[in-house]
Each structure stands twice: as structure tokens, then as C-alpha cells.
Design a binder for these strands. Structure first.
Ligand SMILES: [Mn+2]
Ligand SMILES: [Mn+2]
Ligand SMILES: [Zn+2]
Ligand SMILES: [Zn+2]
Lengths: 129, 129
DNA sequence: TTGCAAAACGCAACAATGTTGCATTAAAAA
DNA sequence: TTTTTAATGCAACATTGTTGCGTTTTGCAA
């Protein structure tokens, strides 16, 4: 990969991710950009955006992969994903809680690379009165 | 569902999970019990074992679902999964670290149900000397 | 031990999600 | 504008998971 190009498909997908308050899956994204590009292109665009540190993957508690903007890692020098995710059992939406960091201690025999913490529960919007 | 039955397929699958030091996926389990039962049966057995609190699901960082014994929740009265999982980037194995619990604080507007924490990195067995 | 109800199974068919190869198109540099 | 090649479309395939239905097997009771 030399110079990444700014294509219509890439713009459309990134735009949907940027304007969403929660993380979106490939099927959801394809539905939203339908007509703009092919199904396969969405997969390839997502891979590229992840490589370029524009977005990051979030695996939900059921195994579905969702994508969200990299908010705190626009500056390409520090790219850490030690924040927390919240997955609502009611509306099924998953969101980044960037302000909540995680700290874990393990024995020296483990070499830690990345943390994935997702909390399932009921989000503020879905709270019963 | 009234009385669960103890079938050959169920025994075989549970046996593989019990004797493994790391969590296994449906494809891995089917490979190991091949000849004993059908592919679909493995799915159904796994669902039943989860319902019966014999095993629990672990979603790996790539979205694949793995299954491990419920060690600390044999006693059916308390069934909490607030422990931590370690996923090795080298050998791809995922294991439960039952002794490491997680504590998180969130605003009152969030109602927490369950925690899913997976750490990716290099496990003790895969450490370069 | 035998008979019975239904839990569990096998198999085929289908659905969803993700991947690959290759000819064609289009972005951006020259 | 021309040229290079990154990116796309499309078809074909692979993997993972689901559903329906007729058949088998388990556990219980007679
Ligand atoms: Mn995030
Ligand atoms: Mn576990
Ligand atoms: Zn919600
Ligand atoms: Zn390892």
C-alpha cells in the first residue's frame, strides 16, 4: 500500500460511522450506503480505514464486529484502545466510553498488548422510568 | 425443556471442553468429536450445556465464540462471570483467568448486567526466552 | 423387563457473513 | 491530458450458524 485514495465508497462509509452515536456493523453500514458501492467494497473499505487508524473494531458480546471512529487516536503517534465499551441489551447498540480507562495487573509471565472490556446492561436511553 | 438427557454427543462434547486447557470453538469441537455426531448436534449440545450452566461462552477478540467449563459456578446459586480472559496473539488460544476479577464504576444512568474483559497479548507458553 | 412420551438426533436445505480472483474503472500524480 | 495503479464490481466460493421434519434413543413408569 502506497498512497490511500479518497474514493466515494470510502467517504460514504466513513461518513456513516462518523455521524452515528453508536458502533455499526458491516451489514448495517452496507444497508446505509446501498447504491453507492458493492457489498465487498464495504469490507475492503473497512479494512483500509482500520489500517489507517481512522476507525477501530469493537467486538460485541454476541461476537458481531462493529466499527467506531477513533476519537482519541487521531494523532497517529499514540494509538491505544484501553477504553471501555457499553453494550445495551435492550436497544443492542454498542458505544465507546472513552473517558473510562481500564487498569489490570497480571503476572509477569503474561505480556499484555491490548485490552477489550465490554459491559453489557441497560443504557441511559433505555432505562425504565 | 423438562429433563435434560445424557446423550453420547453431550458427553463427548463436554468431555473435550473439560479436558482442554483453553476454550474451544464449535468448529474445533466438531473436529474433535467427529464420527460421534452431526455438525448441527454440536450446536444444539452447546446451547443446552450453556442453558444448564455447565459451560459458558467466551467471545474472542476476533469475534469467534469459544466455550469453557464453568469452574466457579458449579453451584447453581451464584452464576457470575466477572472474571478475565486472556487471548494469545501467537497460539490463538483463549483461557479463563478465574482468579482475576474486574471492578468498574459507571454513572448511575447505566445499569450493569455483565462484564466481558479479554486481554490480548502473549501467553506464558509463547513467551520468547 | 417392556412400553411409552418426548428429548435428542441426522440430514437436507437455507441464511448470513466473510473471502478471493480477475477484468475494469477511476483517483491523483506527473 | 496522460499515465499509473489503487480501488471497484461481480461472480464464485468458504465458513458459520439456523430451521424443519421424520427417525432414533433416553429415561421413566407400568
Ligand atoms: Mn471504542
Ligand atoms: Mn471464563
Ligand atoms: Zn439501549
Ligand atoms: Zn500462546
Amino acid at each position: 500500500m502506497t498512497n490511500p485514495r479518497n474514493t466515494k465508497a470510502k467517504q460514504a462509509v466513513l461518513n456513516e460511522i462518523a455521524n452515528s452515536s453508536f458502533a455499526l456493523s458491516q451489514p448495517e453500514l452496507f444497508e446505509r450506503v446501498k447504491g453507492t458501492c458493492d457489498r465487498v467494497t464495504v469490507y475492503r473499505v473497512l479494512d483500509r480505514l482500520v489500517t489507517e487508524n481512522k476507525i477501530h473494531k469493537i467486538v460485541n458480546i454476541d461476537g458481531t464486529i462493529n466499527y467506531a471512529l477513533c476519537a482519541s487516536c487521531d494523532d497517529s503517534h499514540s494509538h491505544a484502545h484501553d477504553h471501555l465499551h457499553f453494550s445495551c441489551v435492550t436497544c443492542k447498540k454498542i458505544e465507546c466510553l472513552e473517558e473510562h480507562l481500564i487498569q489490570v495487573k497480571l503476572p509477569e509471565t503474561y505480556q499484555i498488548k491490548e485490552l477489550f472490556l465490554t459491559i453489557s446492561g441497560i443504557c441511559p436511553s433505555c432505562q425504565p422510568l
